[in-house]
């Protein structure tokens, strides 16, 4: 996984709650055996109609949101199936940061494993940015090391992320290699 310490990018506001992984990446695209190439199918049925044409009323299709890398969303983002294809699709599309009032547990973990920063903030702050980003193009500057977000007006908002998650994101560590440092303990457990 690619290390991530800082990220500055354009914001895409998706003002819906309980966005489930079936919406993030519909099941017909789960048959691939690779980790890559899922970005084109992200939010597929919201982005495209039955004939595969872009839906004009879905904001992500608008020019103003080209090149977005930060997603703002409502409560309980990523609920539903455990499919890691969801973070793969978000990452492949270009998203590196997701900001929501709350995340589903499995999705939160899956995002971290792929170098996406899931940031939990209060609904009010998100609502404010959501409105702004719906009106004009807006960017945020995220500093993971200092756990701070700077918005275009220069406001600094701090956020919480567990230290061990932060450490892994910043270093882009291979978790299996880290775990295998404890192999003696695993072996000891097995003969217990």
């Amino acid at each position: 996984m690619e290390a991530i310490k800082k990220h500055k990018g354009l914001v895409y506001p998706l003002n819906r709650t309980n966005i489930d992984t079936d919406q993030i990446i519909p099941k017909q695209f789960l048959k691939r055996i690779e980790r890559t190439g899922f970005g084109q199918f992200l939010f597929y049925h919201w982005r495209f109609d039955d004939n595969g044409n872009k839906r004009q009323n879905f904001a992500l299709n608008k020019e103003a949101y080209e090149g977005v890398t930060i997603l703002l969303a409502g409560e309980n983002f990523g609920c539903g199936s455990s499919r890691e294809h969801a973070p793969w699709a978000l990452l492949d599309y270009g998203f590196r940061v997701i900001i929501a009032p709350s995340f589903a547990d499995i999705f939160y973990n899956n995002a971290l494993k792929n170098g996406i920063i899931p940031i939990q903030l209060d609904e009010e702050q998100i609502g404010e940015w959501m409105k702004q980003a719906e009106e004009t193009s807006m960017s945020l500057d995220i500093d993971l090391i200092n756990q701070q977000i700077t918005d275009s007006a220069g406001n600094n908002i701090s956020f919480h992320i567990p230290a061990y998650h932060k450490e892994k994101l910043i270093n882009g560590w291979d978790e299996i290699a880290l775990t295998l440092k404890h192999e003696d303990k695993i072996s000891a457990y097995e003969v217990r």
Partner: peptide, 13 residues
């Protein structure tokens, strides 16, 4: 339930 990275982790460790 776990994600695919975790599946790999459990397979290996």
């Amino acid at each position: 339930g776990i994600g695919t990275s975790e599946v790999e982790h459990v397979l290996a460790t």
